[in-house]
Design a protein around this nucleic acid. Structure first.
Lengths: 249, 249
DNA sequence: TCAATAGTGTCTTTGAGACACTATCCG
DNA sequence: CGGATAGTGTCTCAAAGACACTATTGA
């Protein structure tokens, strides 16, 4: 903005501004999104990400936090502005510009509940989204997943998704699911993730010095696995995951 | 958005939405920003980045392109959405949400001219911005520069800034200015960029296979330098610059 | 003792980074 | 030939990646 005319701009027709939030979590080491089934027009009955209008005196981040709170009852999570979607035709009612955020939460803690705006609320695996989604929400969800994937490579964001305590196998499985395209079943049985060598992964992650060995174990079938926590003091550190691997044939 | 109540939302007070554009260019291998000196209240006399209201039927990208056009007369450039700034108090007139874009242009081509909105238009070196800038524009400019810097590491964006034909020395100087903190004058004379070895840089850039040798030369003092062009077909390629260097003392 | 899962060591290859001299042109 | 700028080759080291077996537990 730069104009005197802006001062008179109140007479112009203004778009509406909403904030929509892509809420991501990990369930059984697989990435899921929270969707609401819309009760009302437009797109009644279709699934959508939660969102709502920005209050006239409310910051965008506050609005996103409020939506998150209303839908999931969570506050302390990772929240980041994603992108602003503003095609003139993206909402059939009127011009609506949507500032999209994405949030990472730990799903174990809480189950979402339906509201008067939604007939249902559910976690969907990101590779099994209902078809179609309301508005341009498919694009928004895809953008969030892309952003998350790329950030996982050079941040410790993955630990925002995992439970407080985890085993190396769970961590490995998580990275595998988030990056790996598919398993290779050498003999039919489930093996390692294509292109992600377990030993190299363990070495890299432990050498990085970002894990704390709790001294406790997760019991189950087979040999008990060490439980680790993430050392948040290293969060700003130099850890880079970087997914490459695959040299020979 | 998800509510029936949105349908009635026209009755709510709506924020204004603007698009502001950080226009960056290279002048003498140094990064510059285009700023306008505001003619009117608020912040009259102060420098600001160009911007304006989003038309009710105009996409955000179109609005950004239009601003760019109006201020510089350029169309074909790199344009990317940067971030959306929405603090309730960022504009003294009314609630204004600003979707910021950043654009890369080649400055050689065209000189900006003043308009009825601005008393002056100028390129400023990014490390010599006027103090203060209007609104929160300093933050926005800084965000653009940060984004550009980080993208230069893993994209070929630098070539969007350089003239069509360039020498390796110009390319080296550009990367040095964009990343290097300072020169080291071993003896007083200008030397290489701290931490950026010229030979390693040349090797890396030529091995990457993204340059086309035009066979022509730039004449001047000293040995003529080969002129290269960027091969845009490799734009989506695997080139990564990645700035590290500095192992021993 | 076997099924199931956890955990580990070494060699090879690649790419990054340190390092300083030769080549070409012009006046 | 001297000043000015362009351009190049090799060694070292760290980190990535390929590769397969041993350890621990409970049924």
């Amino acid at each position: 903005m730069s104009e005197a005319e802006q001062y008179d701009a109140t007479i112009y027709e203004r778009p509406s501004v909403t904030v929509d939030v892509v809420i991501l979590t990990l369930i059984n080491e697989a990435l899921h999104v929270l969707l609401l089934q819309r009760r009302h027009w437009p797109y009644a009955g279709q699934w959508a990400i939660p969102g709502g209008f920005v209050g006239i005196d409310e910051s965008l981040e506050d609005a996103a936090q409020r939506e998150l709170q209303e839908e999931t009852g969570i506050q302390a999570v990772y929240l980041e502005q994603l992108y602003t979607f503003g095609s003139p035709q993206r909402d059939p009612r009127t011009r609506v510009i949507s500032v999209a955020y994405f949030a990472l939460v730990r799903a174990d803690r809480h189950q979402p509940s339906t509201s008067d705006e939604a007939t249902a609320v559910r976690w969907f695996p990101i590779d099994q989204l209902p078809e179609p989604l309301a508005f341009d929400h498919r694009v928004i969800v895809q953008a969030a997943v892309n952003r998350l994937r790329s950030k996982l490579e050079y941040t410790t964001l993955a630990f925002q998704l995992l439970p407080e305590e985890f085993t190396l196998a769970e961590l490995y499985e998580t990275y595998g699911q988030l990056f790996g395209d598919r398993r290779r079943g050498d003999d039919g049985a489930a093996g390692e993730w294509a292109g992600l060598d377990k030993r190299n992964f363990y070495r890299k992650i432990t050498d990085a010095g970002i894990l704390h060995d709790t001294g406790r174990f997760r019991e189950g079938r087979g040999r008990p696995a060490k439980l680790y926590t993430f050392r948040p003091e290293t969060q700003s550190g130099e850890f880079v995951f970087r997914w490459r691997e695959a040299r020979a044939g």
